[in-house]
């Protein structure tokens, strides 16, 4: 079904005017964007930002029991744990906990896999760095970035 020449002209004028009118109405609408560095969006509570270790409020120490479940399950090999077993004790203890944010895919499997709920996502999303090595964070040291 091909429209005739004049029909087409009619459709053309109608749709062009309609489209122009629509874009003009949107011209006067309120913009939806945020001026990012000046205005920030509210981040959802469940947002999966870079991970951090939880501190037990009673003892003031990290909850981590160095089971290395998170290291094993991490699909991107972003987590590295160094553990040590102090003499006279059978339990492993956490020595160093590294996360490479350059590898991390923020999937949340480490948080799910933790048996003692010792690791959580923060709401930090601005993790860009100029030097790649700065992306490797040591999480078990208070005072370091994102801790």
């Amino acid at each position: 079904m091909k429209a005739s020449y004049f029909e087409k002209v009619g459709i053309g004028i109608k749709t062009v005017v309609k489209g122009m009118a629509k874009s003009l109405t949107y011209f006067f609408k309120k913009p939806v964007t945020l001026q990012y560095p000046h205005v920030r969006k509210k981040i959802a509570e469940r947002y999966r930002g870079s991970i951090r270790l939880k501190i037990d409020p009673e003892t003031g120490k990290f909850k981590c029991i160095a089971c290395t479940n998170c290291e094993k399950i991490c699909p991107a090999f972003a987590i590295t744990l160094k553990t040590e077993t102090p003499e006279g004790s059978k339990k492993k203890e956490l020595k160093e906990f590294y996360v490479d944010l350059g590898r991390c895919i923020y999937c949340g499997l480490c948080v799910d896999s933790c048996p003692v709920d010792a690791i959580e996502h923060s709401n930090v999303y601005e993790v860009a760095e100029r030097i790649k090595d700065n992306l490797i964070l040591r999480l078990d040291k208070i005072g370091e970035k994102n801790v």
């Binding site: 003009l24 949107y26 609408k29 309120k30 913009p31 939806v32 001026q35």
Partner: peptide
Amino acid sequence: KISGHIQLRLGPM
């Protein structure tokens, strides 16, 4: 600016 406002943005600020 005009393109920005038509597209619900602000354009350069």
